[in-house]
Design a protein around this nucleic acid. Structure first.
Lengths: 192, 192
DNA sequence: TTTTTTACCTACTAGTAAGTAAGTAACTTC
DNA sequence: GAAGTTACTTACTTACTAGTAGGTAAAAAA
């Protein structure tokens, strides 16, 4: 429908994942799209609006994937997620959570609220996924699915941060350990 | 010895942990210290120099603590580390790794190299600590200490990021799970 | 006592940031 | 065919960024 608008969101998403929210400008996006800066302000009056739209798009993607895979076993749902993180690692991009939470205190209030919503949403989905997998006998772990979800999210998030600094094999090593801890014995098949 | 210089480093460290490297300026530091901006440039010609000095100070602290506690059992060494992270969480500051790795691609080359050095140094220390603890029968985990260190670092780093967004109890829940995974049964005594 | 160094200062440059005012060409609706 | 709307444009403002040039008062070294 609105191509320009979507393209702006896509570019902003990319910048947030590669540089961070405070390290890209409307001018950066305008230059790539061969537009003038105020054209970006036409679609997103303030940078907070743009940030919120980027997260909203991510939330839609999460919901879509959740619906799409809701009949799969918990471990296979998680496998799908790990695959998207693997792709992210290969393109040296970090996740929105890894990018936006460190800058949290510098973000406009409305964007802070969105970041919080996104974190909760991701954790809820992971917890549901872990709970399902455990009930199916495909995961073994101690404690609540909610608490375990925190560690899974932590591992995925950090694997992207650290692999960009220390090399790509860091991703494999971390995910291997992470999955081992929940007794998911598909340690190194997530790429397929 | 050089009070002004040290105070600049301390303030910069604080800003990096609360806002991020790209979200504070020499003017911010000058204002707090009641100095003019060029006085900061006198001590640290470029912002990269300042960033490097902040990390160097951190590396010294790590080395000092490592030497200080080297005769303690592995689990107690880790306990000391968890305590410093707990203090950090309480003051809503994240760790240097959590702050600098997301901004990695935007940092000057020299600073990128320092960040890499810092990550390796922390991981080395954690791996040594985990290996010692395992040999002492105080830790139980699968895989290499190096790989396990990645997950421990990941959990500590993320606990600060997420607790700032989702509330302080996130820290307790994450550390509890983290320590459970290496069978360290002092789950909730780390505060004492 | 002269010289040098330390630790700053004022005043500035060049560049970039988000955001705005006002205009316009093309398309849509009435 | 007139009026309104969409999707932009040029030109601008205000505020901040890292960094520099050149000066200075006081302390330390010669």
């Amino acid at each position: 429908m609105n191509d320009t608008r979507n393209q702006i969101i896509t570019l902003a998403d990319d910048f947030i994942r590669t540089r961070g929210f405070n390290a890209f400008s409307y001018a950066d996006i305008a230059a790539i799209m061969d537009l003038q800066k105020p054209a970006i302000h036409y679609y997103f009056p303030s940078k907070a609006d743009l940030g919120i739209s980027v997260i909203d798009k991510e939330l839609e993607t999460i919901t879509r994937n959740r619906d799409l895979h809701h009949n799969l076993p918990g471990d296979e749902q998680l496998k799908e997620l790990v695959q998207t993180f693997f792709a992210s690692s290969r393109s040296r991009k970090i996740c929105l959570t890894g990018s936006l939470t460190p800058e949290y205190t510098t973000l406009p209030q409305r964007l802070q609220d969105k970041v919080q919503e996104m974190c909760r949403s991701i954790l809820d989905w992971m917890a549901a996924c872990l709970e399902k997998g455990r009930a199916e006998g495909r995961f073994v772990f101690q404690g609540t699915p909610q608490d375990r979800a925190l560690l899974v999210m932590s591992g995925l998030l950090s694997s992207l941060l650290l692999s960009r600094v220390l090399g790509e094999d860091i991703f494999d090593r971390m995910i291997g350990q992470l999955l081992q801890d929940i007794n998911a014995n598909f340690s190194h098949q997530y790429k397929k």
